Amino acid sequence: MRAALIYYVAASLDGYIARPDGRVDWLKPIEEAGDDHGYQAFYDSIDGLLMGRVTYETVLAFGGDWPYPGKPCTVLTRGDLPQAASDVRICHDTPTQAIEQMTAAGCKRIWLVGGGSLAGTCYSAGLLDELVVSFIPHLLGAGILMFATGLERRLQLREQRSFPTGVVQLHYQLLPEAELP
């Protein structure tokens, strides 16, 4: 059985995960509020991470220690990138190949970290199982969309949470295509 792939992401109320230039500075007031909005519980529930080159380079640009300790991370890229930590694997696999390898290594729940392009690719390939979106009370008007591809899919709400910061978190299960009308 393949590991579950969960897209856990913060988005503006109008569906953007970053400004057009990739900056996420608009998240700073929420981060500074002191509430982790369930992040640590989510992080504890996953066994590995999958990310693309642009997200990886963005994380590296923040500087400091690798922010995802103790979890294997596969970075999909066609180029050469520095290895940020011993549990980071840089490869030219397809998302399917990467998930198969992570499943074989014992991962049961994989976090798809950031990146509307990779999220769209995984969605189109039928790999995405869950979507957890923390909607931030902010309108960007333009930027990088949560999914870089047009899509239609029914979702089943599993959980909803609201926080004093105005963040609303929705946790969905993607329904099989057979369940579409």
Rank of each mutant, 00 (worst) to 15 (best):
P164V: 14
L170Q: 09
L157V: 12
K28I: 02
L76W: 02
A104E: 13
E32S: 09
A98W: 00
S162F: 08
V132K: 08
R78E: 09
D80V: 14
G114D: 02
K108R: 15
C73E: 14
A148T: 00
G126D: 01
G34P: 06
Y39S: 02
C91S: 09
F42G: 01
A119N: 07
E177Y: 04
G166N: 06
F62I: 04
D36C: 11
L140K: 15
T121F: 02
G52R: 15
S162Y: 12
T121W: 02
A148K: 01
A61Y: 10
R89L: 11
G141M: 04
K28P: 00
A125E: 09
L180H: 09
D65Q: 11
T77P: 13
G15A: 08
G15V: 06
M51E: 04
I30A: 03
A148C: 01
I17P: 03
R53T: 06
L139S: 13
Y7M: 15
T165I: 10
L175Q: 01
R2D: 08
F62R: 14
L60W: 13
G64A: 13
L50S: 14
G79I: 01
V132M: 14
P181F: 06
M1H: 11
H92T: 12
T165V: 07
R78G: 07
W26N: 13
G63S: 10
L81R: 12
L112A: 00
D36L: 10
C107Q: 04
E100R: 06
L13R: 05
H138Y: 10
